[in-house]
């Protein structure tokens, strides 16, 4: 762990608000990004981010440095966000945003399409939560399949399959090969 960060953590644990603020600022962007991608919309992401920061504040006294602070923070962020989604049962529904969704013209070049982060975020938001969560944990946090499987309490093979299918879906979506409801039908038919 970074020496300066260790000092900040110790100071924050002893009630130093300035140290706590520095810690929260240094991890804020990644926390929000994770919440944004896991929840699939801005409003829930903001709620979840606030919950995550509060969980960190409450849990900080018990952090002992047995893992990297960033690992601990992102684990809290993931668990809090998933708990929030579970508690509220506000999983984004694919059908709701269909009216605003204009698929790319079929045959577009993937590189051109994916350059637009807005398009990609929208495509990611359209993925069902069961598929979005593993790919975000993999690509945003760099967790391996086993870690994701443990966190989500899924078999490792399922994680592997869902990440692959999520990527295929994103690719198809950005290229305009399929629309979101096709993917939902595929998932429902299984």
């Amino acid at each position: 762990m970074d020496h300066n960060e260790s000092k900040l953590i110790a100071a924050a644990q002893n009630g130093d608000s300035a140290a706590l603020e520095k810690l929260l600022r240094s991890h804020y962007d990644m926390i929000f990004s994770l919440c944004r991608k896991l929840t699939g919309n801005e409003a829930d992401a903001n709620d979840a981010t606030q919950e995550v920061l509060l969980s960190i504040v409450k849990g900080l006294p018990s952090f002992r440095g047995t893992s990297k602070f960033s690992t601990w923070v992102y684990r809290i962020a993931t668990n809090t966000t998933l708990d929030e989604l579970r508690k509220r049962s506000r999983r984004p529904l694919l059908g709701l945003e269909e009216s605003n969704y204009v698929p790319k013209q079929k045959g577009s070049d993937l590189e051109d399409s994916v350059v637009s982060s807005i398009d990609l975020q929208a495509a990611l938001d359209r993925l069902p939560e069961d598929f979005r969560t593993p790919i975000v944990l993999r690509d945003q946090l760099g967790m391996n399949y086993e870690e994701i499987a443990n966190l989500l309490q899924l078999p490792s093979g399922t994680v592997k399959s869902r990440i692959a299918r999520a990527r295929s879906r994103l690719k198809d979506d950005l290229l305009g090969n399929k629309n979101a409801s096709d993917f939902v039908k595929e998932v429902e038919n299984e």
Binding site: S33, K37, E111, S117, I135, R138, R167
Partner: peptide, 16 residues
């Protein structure tokens, strides 16, 4: 390579 491109973009930080 296509998947890698997607993966890189999914991994980009979304700012509030």
């Amino acid at each position: 390579e296509e998947f890698k491109l997607l993966s890189n973009h999914v991994g980009q930080t979304a700012l509030n």
